[in-house]
Amino acid sequence: MKPGARPRLVWVALLVLGLALTLVSLLLGRGGQWLSLAGAASLEPAVFQTILLEIRLPRTLLALLVGASLGMAGAALQGLLRNPLADPGVIGVSAGAAFGAVLAFYFGLSQSFSLALPLAGMAGAGAALSLLFLLAGRGASTLGLVLAGVAVSAFAAALTSLALNLAPSPFAALEIIFWMMGSLVDRSMQHVGLAVVPIVVGLGLLMTQARALDAMTLGEDVAATLGFRTAAVRAVVLIGCAAAVGASVSVAGSIGFVGLVVPHLLRPLVGHQPGRLLPLSAAGGGVMLLGADILTRLTDTGPELRLGVVTALLGAPFFLLLLMRLRREAA
């Protein structure tokens, strides 16, 4: 089969699915109850409008933006590190971002200066990524990367937990589940406003490195002879991931597995070219997270499922399959 015919088909399928899920996300509420202006469950027009525009719309937009960030960041990191397990959640970038955001949020910085929240998230993500590159830089084995990622992740999670325990608000310690598992419940357009610029800039930066990442599949030396400065490529990818993931986590908490699953599902469809995988993973990540967020609303009793729980339920078996396949290939 010609590569090129199928990607177009995949793009069309993702767009159609994305539009359909967007519509569902705007209209479907807790316990599978539809938003309606007529019939038994009808709402006053003003209430209908407020729920639609102030709650469902930001929720949907954030699912798409955060999903796109995680999907593309996963694809870019996997391309850069030439490592199939590089995912913002697995290697500790999300945990670092959560720590940064927690510091800014609970200790009052983001109250006096609201952009402090995404900026601190980005700084945390950048710090975690830098630490990771130091511990397991280029050419590190899969094992080395995962071990370094586990270390960074556990350290950042411990710091987050410590910060929440020391925070002045008595509610802070209870909110660790948001930062560890993520949620889009009751977010507002203010959160969209805070996150959208860094996410778009981050994704744009990653896109500028598409061709460089393609070249790097042939090895860093070959990429260098093709005129790509690997140090610069690495720096731009690092900054792009930190911006997109940092801003995402600061408004939605850490959500795992999206950056792992999506690139892997889509990679065979673009002939294993990281450059072409980037935009496709962004679209796929948005669709996956939106779908997962819709699933969280289907229970009608008790608190809503956490977004990270749903993505983990979908993603963890996939992660195991991936590990088994890697072992079989190695054997």
Binding site: V47, E54, F105, Y106, A167, P170, F178, D186, S188, Q190
Partner: peptide, 26 residues
């Protein structure tokens, strides 16, 4: 807002300031 330090920043407090609750139309 409870007593004591409850008004310090937290997501729990942030809910009370959600724009939807301030919507004039409602």
């Amino acid at each position: 807002t409870g007593s004591d330090a409850s008004r310090e920043p937290s997501m729990a407090i942030e809910i009370l300031n959600h724009p939807a609750l301030h919507d004039r139309a409602l």
